[in-house]
Write a protein that binds this DNA or RNA. Structure first.
Lengths: 197, 197
DNA sequence: CGAGTCGTTGACACTCTTCAAGCGCGGTGG
DNA sequence: CCACCGCGCTTGAAGAGTGTCAACGACTCG
């Protein structure tokens, strides 16, 4: 099943086979916050609850493998292994969410943008040999979406990106394709990362 | 087992029987973000992983019921019901984390403080009959901790609290005990809450 | 060709932070 | 017993960092 990018509510369960799905929440006055991105090959959906006021939509062209609600809930009862894997994924998503809370609450705009690029490099770089020094990828989000992810405005995102480009940390083509020559230089701009030095 | 408020790393698993435990992450330059609060009767700990760089410490006097790591992992293998409940709690924490991401990323300082008070009222009010109009409780956190939870400075927290008091939304005694006479008035200050109107 | 979206850039306003001082309270020691 | 100090909290004044508003170019789609 192939989506081309249109918004949709997910009331069935799916596996993301390719592409990026964005999860967002919004306030009644229009403010919006992206609360997570699902890359392949992750599970999509929220068991045990009517959809928790989260909107899911495709950020890029997305390939899904989806099942009706009932079938998945049957599988979960039948297979321990399935429930176990779901628990592990949920714990990972919780870790990521909390990590991102630090970025949202305590990092400056330049650090937020750098952190976002670093996360992108680690998740969707097409040619990244683990621990490589450089990365190159297409941004799956528009500036406005990035701003909703980082809790800043699209103008600020744009300004910080051009600043990173001016400083030689990244190169940008077509406004969407980003190349990072030195990952470690990018990491230095993310604001300290360790816990308790 | 009774803690009196000192910091400690949790490498065993525990149930929170009473009190409030605060979970935080911090950057190497000292900036800190509280990423969650655990109230009774929740589970505390992170299975399947070396502690994920999260610090847990008691915010108030806390009563725990804790088990060694190995015992809990045995229980999880033995009892489906146990793993199932852990999954449900983790999903709930994920929902809360994402809800808070909206507050961190998209709400103003006045809205953040109001949202925090509302959350406190719902979680630790000693005399709250569901859907009651008023609430009264002791804050489990200092101003500095609240600011680390909301991603603002303690000065801003203080200013917004006195503003809420000046506007008659809350009353404050001893700088710690808060009374909310009209919950709905407080809710109006949290910034719209619905998903897609 | 006109309309719409996305991205960039500039000028200005404003929220929030930073820095500083002061108050109240509890613990400690002279 | 009381002065002293430390800590949490409040308040003020000034400044920095982002947001807001606006204009413009590049590109896509009808």
């Amino acid at each position: 099943m192939e989506l081309t990018g249109e918004a949709q509510n997910v009331d069935s369960y799916s596996n993301v086979l390719s592409g990026v799905v964005k999860l967002s929440k919004s306030l009644s006055d229009g403010r919006q916050q992206i609360v997570g991105l699902q890359f392949a090959p992750n599970f999509l959906g929220r068991p045990f609850k009517v959809e928790s006021s989260i909107n899911a939509e495709a950020a890029t062209a997305v390939t899904l493998c989806s099942f009706p609600r009932a079938a998945v809930e049957r599988m979960m009862k039948a297979s321990r292994e399935f429930e176990h894997r779901l628990l592990k994924q949920t714990l990972n998503e919780l870790d990521e969410a909390r990590e991102w809370m630090v970025t949202l609450g305590r990092k400056t705009a330049p650090e937020k943008v750098a952190s976002f690029l670093l996360m992108m490099a680690r998740n969707i770089d097409s040619s990244l040999d683990a621990a490589s020094r450089s990365a190159s990828f297409d941004l799956p989000l528009t500036r406005a979406e990035i701003s909703d992810f980082l809790g800043i405005t699209n103008e600020t995102v744009s300004r910080q990106l051009t600043r990173l480009r001016a400083d030689g940390v990244i190169r940008i083509e077509n406004a969407r394709h980003v190349t990072v020559d030195s990952i470690s230089r990018l990491e230095k701009r993310c604001g300290g990362g360790r816990e308790r030095p």
